[in-house]
Design a protein around this nucleic acid. Structure first.
Lengths: 189, 189
DNA sequence: AGCCGAATTTGATTTATATCAAAAGTTTTG
DNA sequence: CAAAACTTTTGATATAAATCAAATTCGGCT
C-alpha cells in the first residue's frame, strides 16, 4: 500500500529517485485512527506532517472560546499545524480527524534531513509548500472582499462534496461566517 | 551593491555557495523606476519575481471595478503576481511601485534552472516560498474572523510605518474594509 | 507661494451578517 | 429502540461596516 501511495504523491508533486524513496520509507508511519482523534493538541510542540490517505481531518484554533476552522484535508492531501510545524513554536492549532482515517505521519526532522541529503527531496518539499501557499492565496482573495454567499459557492467549487464529510458549523467557520448565516444561504437555493 | 544585497538575502533565507551565487548573478537585473511604474499589467503573462531593494510596491487586482490590494513589499522583500508567476496563467494581479524604487528582477525560468542545477538554490527557493506561505497564513487568520479594528492594529504591528508609504485606501483594501471605515477607526484613537 | 486634483474625513442612511433564543432534525449510545 | 446529545434550521433583533454624498485637508506642480 505504501508504495502505491508514494507513487501517487510523487506523481502529483515531483519524481523521486529510488534511493530517496527507500530512505524516505524508513521514516513513514502509517496509522489508522477513529473519527475525533486529536493528532495535534493545542499548546503542544508539534513536529509532524500528516498525509490523509483515506478519510479527512481539520485544523482549528480557538478565538474567544469559539472554534475557528483553519484547514481541511481529504483523501491525498497534506495537513499540519502550520505555525507549530514551520515556526517550531507551541502550536496554536489543533488537528482532529473528522472521519475514521488512514494517515501517513512524517517527522519534520527526518524530512529536513532528507531535504538536506537529497536534492530531489528538497524539490519535492518545495512543491508541497508551493501548493499550500497557493491554496492560502486563494483563500485570502475570497476572504478579503466577498459576501457570505460568494464564499460558500467558492468553497463548493473547490470541494463539491465537503458537506458529506464536514459539519455545517465547521464549514461556516472556515469561510468566516456563522453557521446560522450558512444555513440560511443553503435554504434559499 | 549587488554583492551586499545578495549577502543580506542569503543571510535571511539560506546560505549559497560561491559557485551558485556567481551563476545567479548572471541573471539578476537591477532596475530603478519611478513611483507609479507598473511592473506587471493585468492579463499579461508574467515570469518575473521582484525584490525591493529600496522603495515599495503593491500587488492588486480588480473586483467589480474596484481596486483590491493583495500584497505589499517594502525594503528587502519579495513580490510577484502570485497566480501568474506560479501557475503560468495570465496574471489577474498587477504590480505597481508605490514609491521611487530600486528593485531586482529575476526570471522564473532562470530561477528554475538554478534550482534544478544547484541543491542549495533549491533550498533557498523553498525558504522564500515558505516565508510567503506563512505570511499568507497569518492574513487568513485575521481575515477570517476579526473586526475592522483588530485587522488594522494587526497590520500596524506587522508594518508599523506602513502609513508613511501607502495611501489609506490601499491599506483599507488590504485588510478587507472600506477606506471610510479605516478613517473612522483611526480618528478614534 | 498658491492652485488644482487627489486623498482623507465626516455625516446620514442602509444593509448584510452577527447574536440570541428556541424549535426541529439527526446521530450516537447505553 | 428510546433517551441523550449533537446539528441544523428558523425567527426576532442588534450591530458593525458598507454605501452614498459632501466637506475638508493634503501634497505635488507651475
Amino acid at each position: 500500500m505504501l508504495n502505491e501511495i508514494i507513487k501517487k504523491i510523487t506523481e502529483e508533486y515531483s519524481v523521486l529517485s529510488n534511493e530517496t524513496i527507500d530512505k524516505w520509507k524508513e521514516n513513514i508511519k502509517v496509522l489508522e485512527f477513529k473519527k475525533g482523534t486529536q493528532l495535534v493538541k493545542e499548546e503542544k510542540f508539534t513536529n509532524k506532517l500528516y498525509f490523509i490517505y483515506k478519510g479527512s481531518a481539520k485544523a482549528y484554533h480557538l478565538k474567544d472560546g469559539k472554534i475557528i476552522t483553519d484547514w481541511f484535508a481529504f483523501n491525498n492531501e497534506f495537513i499540519c499545524a502550520i505555525t507549530g510545524y514551520f515556526l517550531k513554536e507551541p502550536s496554536e492549532h489543533c488537528i482532529e480527524l473528522t472521519e475514521n482515517s488512514i494517515i501517513l505521519e512524517f517527522e519534520r526532522e527526518k524530512l529536513t534531513e532528507l531535504s538536506n541529503k537529497f536534492h530531489d527531496f528538497e524539490r519535492f518539499s518545495r512543491k508541497i509548500i508551493t501548493k499550500i501557499m497557493l491554496q492560502l492565496q486563494k483563500r485570502v482573495v475570497y476572504l478579503q472582499f466577498s459576501t457570505a454567499n460568494e464564499r460558500y459557492h467558492f468553497l463548493l467549487k473547490e470541494y463539491p462534496k465537503i458537506e458529506l464529510h464536514i459539519p455545517l458549523g465547521d464549514i461556516a467557520s472556515y469561510i468566516g461566517i456563522t453557521q446560522e448565516t450558512l444555513s440560511r444561504i443553503r435554504a434559499k437555493k
